[in-house]
Simulated scan of single mutants.
Amino acid sequence: MSTMTQTLLAATALSAGIAAATVAHSSELPADQAVRNVVLVHGAFADGSGWRGVYDELSKRGYRVTIVQNPLTSLADDVAATKRALDRQAGPTILVGHSWGGTVITEAGVHPKVAGLVYVSALAPDAGETTAQQYDGFTTPPEFVIDTQADGFGFLNLETFQAGFAHDVSDADAAFMRDSQVPINMSAFGTRLEHAAWRTKPSWAVIATEDKAFDQKMLFGMAKRIGATITEVAASHAVFMTQPEVVSGVIDQAAQSAGRAVR
C-alpha cells in the first residue's frame, strides 16, 4: 500500500470519526425528555443574532431552538412576535429572555406551550407593573446611558456603549454591536403588564455579576421575588453573548426540570 493511499485512508477514517462524534453530540437528549424546544428573546439595543453561541450550544445538545426578532416598537409588538414563535413549537417549550426580553417573556409566557422561564440578566415585572417601576429605589450604573431621540426611540450612548453593555468583548466586536444596535421605543418601559407568567411557571435566572445596565441589588431582588433558581456568572450585560455555555447549561437544567413536571 502506497504512502499516499495510507494517508487518504487515515484522513477518511478521521473524517468519519469526526462526523460520527458530531452526530452523537447533536442528539444527546434522552428519548423520553418532554421539553425539547427553546425560544430565545433578545432585549433592547440588540437583535437575535447575539444568541448565536447559545443557539449552537443548545442545537448540539439536541434542542430545537427558535430566535425571536423583536421589533422593539412596543411591548405589545414584542409579545406578539414572541407568541408567533411559540405558536410554531411542536410541544412544551422553555422561554428565555435577556434584559428587556424578560419583560416580554413575563407577558408572553402565559402561552400554553411554555413550560418554564429563564431570565438572563433580565427584567421581571409583576402584572399591573411597568418595566420602569423596577428601577425605583435603585441606581443605574453611570456607564449605562440611553440617548432618547426626538421620535421617542432610545439608543445607547456611543461613548459609553462598551463600558455599559459589553466590556468583556473585543473592541472590534463592541464597535460592531454599538453601530448595529436596534433602538427601542422608550414608551414601552411605561406599559403596564397584564400577566406575570412567573406566578404560574417555574423560573430560572442567570445574573451577570459585572452587569452595568442594572443595579446588582435590583437584579437579585427581581430574581428572588419570582422564586427563580439563580446562577451567577462573571460577565457584562452581554452575558447572553459572552457566556453561551453557562446560559445554555441553565436552559438545559430548566428543560429537564420543567419536563419532569409536564410528564
Score class of each variant (00 low, 15 high):
1 M>R: 12
1 M>W: 10
1 M>D: 09
3 T>I: 13
4 M>D: 15
4 M>S: 15
6 Q>K: 15
10 A>G: 04
12 T>R: 12
13 A>K: 04
14 L>N: 00
14 L>Q: 03
14 L>V: 14
14 L>T: 14
16 A>D: 04
19 A>E: 11
23 V>S: 14
26 S>W: 10
29 L>N: 11
31 A>I: 07
33 Q>P: 02
34 A>F: 06
36 R>I: 06
36 R>Q: 14
38 V>R: 08
38 V>Q: 08
41 V>I: 10
42 H>D: 08
42 H>L: 09
45 F>H: 11
46 A>I: 14
48 G>F: 08
50 G>L: 11
51 W>L: 06
51 W>E: 05
57 E>S: 12
59 S>I: 01
61 R>C: 00
61 R>M: 11
63 Y>C: 03
63 Y>E: 01
65 V>G: 01
66 T>K: 12
67 I>D: 00
74 S>Q: 05
81 A>Y: 07
83 K>W: 08
83 K>I: 05
92 P>H: 10
93 T>I: 10
94 I>W: 12
95 L>A: 10
95 L>C: 10
98 H>K: 08
103 T>S: 15
104 V>I: 15
105 I>W: 04
105 I>Y: 06
108 A>S: 07
109 G>T: 02
109 G>W: 03
113 K>V: 07
114 V>F: 06
116 G>R: 06
116 G>V: 02
117 L>I: 01
117 L>F: 00
117 L>T: 01
118 V>P: 06
120 V>G: 11
123 L>Q: 11
124 A>G: 08
124 A>M: 11
128 G>P: 05
128 G>F: 09
129 E>T: 09
129 E>Y: 03
133 Q>H: 01
137 G>N: 05
137 G>S: 06
138 F>E: 03
139 T>R: 12
143 E>I: 00
146 I>R: 13
146 I>A: 14
146 I>Y: 09
147 D>L: 10
152 G>I: 07
153 F>Y: 14
154 G>V: 02
156 L>S: 05
157 N>K: 02
157 N>Q: 01
160 T>L: 08
163 A>H: 00
169 V>Q: 06
170 S>G: 13
171 D>R: 08
171 D>F: 04
171 D>A: 13
172 A>N: 01
173 D>Q: 13
179 D>T: 07
182 V>E: 03
185 N>Q: 12
189 F>P: 00
193 L>Q: 03
195 H>E: 12
195 H>S: 11
197 A>D: 03
204 W>I: 07
206 V>W: 08
210 E>A: 14
213 A>D: 05
214 F>N: 11
216 Q>M: 12
218 M>W: 07
219 L>K: 03
219 L>Y: 01
220 F>R: 15
220 F>E: 12
224 K>L: 04
228 A>H: 06
229 T>K: 15
230 I>C: 09
230 I>D: 04
230 I>F: 10
233 V>R: 03
234 A>P: 00
234 A>W: 01
238 A>K: 00
238 A>V: 00
240 F>L: 14
241 M>H: 05
243 Q>F: 02
246 V>G: 09
248 S>G: 15
249 G>K: 11
251 I>H: 10
252 D>Q: 05
254 A>Q: 07
254 A>F: 04
259 G>S: 11
260 R>I: 02
261 A>D: 14
263 R>C: 01
263 R>K: 15
